Amino acid sequence: MLFPIVFIGFSAQVVFGATIYVSPTGLDTAAGTITAPLKSIQSAIDKAVAGDTIYLRAGTYSPTTNIQIKKSGTASALYTLSAYSTEKVIIDGEGLPYTPADLDASLPSASRGILHIQGASYWKLYGIELINGPYGIYAVDSSYNTYEKLVTRDNYETGFQLQGASAHNTVLYLDSYGNRDPRKNGESADGLGFKEGTGAGNLIKGARLWNNVDDGLDLWEFKTGIEIQDTISWGNGFNRWGFTDFGGDGNGFKLGGGDAADIGAANHIVNNSIAFLNAAKGFTDNSQTGNFVLTRNTAWNNGDSGFKMATAVSTLTSNIAALNTNSQVSLSGTQTQSGNSWNIGGTWNNATFKSVDSSSVTGARASSGKIVGSDFLLPVSGAALGATTYW
Results as ranks from 00 to 15, higher is better:
Leu277Ala: 13
Arg240Leu: 11
Ser106Leu: 13
Leu125Asn: 07
Tyr147Gly: 01
Thr311Val: 10
Gly17Arg: 02
Arg208Glu: 07
Ala101Glu: 07
Ala266Val: 05
Gln328Thr: 03
Met1Leu: 02
Leu316Gln: 02
Ala275Lys: 01
Gly303Gln: 03
Ala266Tyr: 00
Pro182His: 00
Ile204Leu: 13
Arg112Trp: 05
Met309Ser: 05
Asp181Tyr: 03
Gly250Pro: 01
Phe292Gly: 06
Ser43Arg: 14
Phe246Ser: 02
Lys308Ile: 00
Asp230Phe: 03
Ala351Ser: 11
Val15Asp: 12
Ile67Ser: 00
Gly193Ile: 02
Gln42Ile: 09
Gly237Lys: 00
Trp348Pro: 07
Ile41Asp: 00
Ala261His: 11
Gly26His: 06
Ala30Tyr: 09
Tyr147Gln: 00
Asn211His: 14
Ala299Trp: 03
Leu172Cys: 05
Pro37Phe: 04
Gly119Arg: 10
Val14Phe: 14
Ser332Ala: 13
Ala75Phe: 12
Ala189Lys: 04
Ala265Val: 00
Phe292Trp: 10
Leu217His: 03
Ser106His: 13
Gly191Pro: 07
Thr325Val: 13
Asn324Met: 00
Val22Ile: 11
Pro182Cys: 03
Glu148Tyr: 14
Thr25Met: 02
Gln68Ala: 13
Asp102Ile: 11
Lys205Asn: 14
Asn297Asp: 15
Ala260Ser: 15
Thr152Asp: 05
